[in-house]
């Protein structure tokens, strides 16, 4: 089968790689480029563990072929911390025990980070709607919602 040369930018770093058409975006990120933050969970587009931002919007990277993302600007969970210093959202997940096993956390963080960019003072219901596409099999949703709410509060105080 054919192979294709593509280029992507991940967290600001330019990469060129060669992929088979059937290589999923999440597989290219993890196995070709070493961005193992995006996890492979259900592989059916339900669980959201593989959530990344492509050109500013969250998508599930198991439901996109890598070759389709040629030229895209991709952001993964590795890009949230600034030179090793956790973002406010990441700190609040830690503070509020917003993670247990941690498997859903990269996707949760990407969905929550994207949501908070456009929603400065969300209700808990709005937060729950925002993470509807991210399943936590530890069922630790209360603390995740707490963490996102606390982040919104903290960012609001800083504004």
């Amino acid at each position: 089968m054919s192979e294709h040369n593509i280029s992507v930018t991940v967290n600001g770093t330019h990469h060129e790689l060669t992929v088979e058409p059937r290589t999923l975006l999440v597989s290219a990120l993890r196995e070709e480029l070493g961005y193992t933050g995006a996890n492979v969970g259900c592989e059916t587009g339900r669980c959201g563990a593989c959530t990344v931002r492509v050109d500013g919007e969250t998508i599930k990277s198991c439901t996109r072929f890598a070759v389709q993302s040629d030229g895209a600007e991709i952001e993964t969970v590795e890009g949230l911390a600034d030179d090793g210093e956790l973002s406010t959202l990441q700190e609040q997940f830690q503070e509020n025990h917003g993670l247990q096993c941690g498997y859903c956390t990269p996707g949760m963080l990407m969905s929550a980070d994207t949501f908070l960019r456009e929603n400065e003072d969300p209700s808990r219901e709005e937060i729950r709607d925002a993470i509807e596409g991210n399943l936590c099999r530890c069922t630790g949703y209360h603390n995740i919602v707490d963490a996102i709410e606390a982040t919104a509060d903290q960012l609001g105080e800083q504004r």
Partner: peptide, 9 residues
Amino acid sequence: LGDPPVRNG
């Protein structure tokens, strides 16, 4: 339909 990332995709 679906959820936020699915609606984006």
